[in-house]
Design a protein around this nucleic acid. Structure first.
Length: 574
RNA sequence: GGGGCGGUAGCUCAGCCGGUUAGAGCAGAGGACUCAUAAUCCUUGGGUCGUGGGUUCGAGUCCCACCCGCCCUACCA
């Protein structure tokens, strides 16, 4: 079995994330990780909070907390919502960890030793009123091109021209509005990406199986010519630059954030006393397949900056074997936005419905080929049709009927005949397709195929009509019900990557006497069914006790939709 | 400005290397059934595949131009 290293883009520490963040990296990564674990592969699924950078410092200031304490609290809050969504991280780390500090500094030294780091003196904006250096974006002033008064130091939102803060007329701090700012010389480290461009290009072009979304973004940057990139900042919060003359400076958040993939792996090993196990995933790890998940805004950092860091180190650290990029999920009238609090956030989502409702809908509508839009009407329609009517109702109708007529044990009945043969033929084909989708990271199609499998079960039941069979030939009805119950067990196994809670409930229906207490996060999950098992449909034998669980998925009503539209500000027409 | 993605039935989307009458789900229409969360199953109507050229025996699928929508563009991450 192959070793799979799976990472999700690191959610920024600043606030609870929204459904767009979830569907753009963490959720599909989780589905993939769960699927591979069920297949028996050795999987390490890593994520972490990205804690450095100016926004974190400012948010802490707003909250009246020291930044370290602010981040600790936010990390805990995020970890809580991810647990609520049943994201099965093997480790959820923090980019501010000692492990990441050590590794980030290590990479800094290695790059310098290999001649990929250069010191340069640049003009940085210093705000005396705020007593801090300001990133370009936090300097505002009048645009020299169009006269727009609130242009940011990096770009004018009005005329979209790219700017340098020194070009602004009447520059002032975006924090307090103070004009008491100055341009100070500051010494910084630059990563000489330009020298690594040929190696990056070779690497990108050798990856012919990547999504075009990923490779086209990477090639665009390479084709335009890589600029050397400043990787240090004049800030207090971050990984300190341990180099003479760089006291009080830290590495830029985008230098240390991806290194935290490695850092978090080391955190994982350290926390469990696994010693150097972390290195087996990252260093000289040719037996590991590394798959990254991220939204498209993150692609440049994962195809250019991070690989440049790794290649420039001259050490055999792992680079991604596959990068799965996603487009955006939009909400009424625009993007989900953490800063504007626009959209549905993960904590409030869990307040109104359990994780599986969201997980299924988001995977079934993952923005793989284009941006997608979330609407409550679409959400409710799909949940009702697929989860409640198709899957949930099947489970309920089979179990309640069988209990009423044959008691609380799986009935025996006749031997399987041609209809069962036809059913399993169909299932084998569909399960093969489903696996192909998951292997190929085609999440929308995977959900579609899963839904088709549920539907085939309903068709089988209608074809056999045990409520009619029972009048003439009870043994025939029993065969049908026993077969249907095995379909429920099949659903329990193959639905687990997408709707783990429902899968767990389904597994609990039949008392298989195997102390089937598989945990949620981190556990290996149920063994993935072999195609031969599908042909025989014999997981659940005659005589097995069963219970009828409560309704798996409730139907969402027009009143629900109305209430949620109101609560989450969906009044703007899309 | 540059680049990317998309524009296929009312809606959300599949359609790989060009090849018989363009598919699915939902919604609509008709029917069946009554075990079930008024669920399910069967049948069915509906599309000049953004526009205009071109290549080809043949194009939704390749090439060119244009139009529309969204996104990215290196100091927000």
């Amino acid at each position: 079995m192959t070793k799979y290293l799976i990472t999700s883009a690191l959610p920024y520490i600043n606030g609870i994330k929204h459904l767009g963040n979830l569907v753009g990296s963490m959720l599909p990564a989780d589905v993939y990780a769960r699927y591979l674990r069920q297949q028996g592969h050795e999987v390490l699924f890593i994520c972490a909070t990205d804690e450095h950078g100016t926004p974190a410092e400012l948010a802490a200031l707003d909250a009246g907390l020291p930044v370290a304490e602010f981040c600790r609290q936010q990390h805990e809050a995020q970890a809580g919502t991810y647990a609520g969504f049943k994201l099965s991280f093997d480790h959820f780390g923090r980019s501010s960890s000692p492990q990441n500090r050590e590794l980030t500094q290590h990479f800094g030294h290695r790059l310098a030793d290999n001649g990929y780091i250069e010191e340069r003196v640049t003009k940085q904006v210093y705000s005396r009123a705020d007593e801090r250096f300001l990133p370009d974006r936090y300097v505002i002033g009048t645009c020299p091109h169009c006269g727009y008064a609130a242009a940011r130091g990096d770009q004018c939102e009005n005329c979209t021209r790219l700017l340098d803060p020194t070009q602004l007329i009447n520059p002032r701090s975006a924090l307090g509005g103070s004009e008491d700012i100055e341009f100070r010389d500051s010494r910084h480290l630059y990563l000489l990406q330009s020298r690594l461009a040929p190696r990056l290009r070779d690497w990108i072009t050798s990856r012919t199986d990547w999504p075009t979304l990923t490779t086209s973004i990477a090639l665009k940057w390479l084709n335009e010519g890589l600029e050397d990139r400043g990787i240090t900042r004049d800030l207090d919060w971050g990984v300190p630059v341990d180099r003479d003359g760089f006291e009080g400076k830290v590495y830029y958040v985008w230098f240390d954030a991806p290194i935290e993939y490695i850092g978090a792996t080391k955190e994982h090993s350290d926390a469990r006393g696994l010693g150097d196990d972390w290195r087996s995933w990252w260093y000289d790890a040719s037996d590991v397949r590394y798959v990254q998940f991220m939204a498209k805004d993150n692609v440049p950092f994962h195809t250019i900056t991070f690989p440049a860091t790794i290649m420039g180190s001259g050490e055999p650290w792992k680079v991604a074997d596959y990068i799965k990029g996603f487009n955006w999920l939009n909400y009424y009238g625009g993007k989900f936005s953490t800063s504007r609090r626009h959209g549905v956030f993960m904590d409030s989502a869990l307040e109104i419905l359990p994780a599986d409702y969201w997980r299924y809908f988001l995977i079934a509508n993952a923005p793989e080929s284009d941006d997608a839009t979330f609407t409550w009407e679409h959400f409710a329609a799909q949940v009702n049709k697929d989860l409640a009517d198709n899957l949930g109702n099947f489970v309920n109708r089979v179990l309640t009927f069988s209990r009423k007529r044959f008691g609380e044990q799986v009935p025996a009945g006749a031997e399987a005949g041609p209809p069962e043969q036809q059913l399993t033929d169909q299932l084998v084909t569909l399960l093969g397709e489903y696996q192909s989708c998951l292997d190929g990271l085609q999440f929308r199609k995977a959900a579609q195929t899963l839904r088709t499998i549920w539907s085939v079960a309903n068709s089988y039941l209608e074809l056999k009509s045990p409520w009619l069979e029972i009048r003439e030939d009870p043994a025939a009805a029993q065969l049908t019900l026993r077969t249907a119950m095995n379909l429920i067990q099949l659903f329990a196994l193959i639905s687990e990557p997408i709707i783990p809670d429902a899968a767990r409930t389904l597994r609990g229906i039949f008392d298989l006497g195997d102390a089937d207490d598989l945990g949620d996060a981190g556990a290996a999950g149920s063994p993935w069914p072999a195609l031969d098992d599908v042909r025989s449909l014999s997981w659940v034998a005659a005589g097995t006790p069963f219970t009828v669980p409560p309704v798996l998925f409730r139907k969402l009503t027009d009143e629900d939709i109305e209430a949620w539209r109101e609560r989450f500000g969906a009044e703007t027409a899309a």
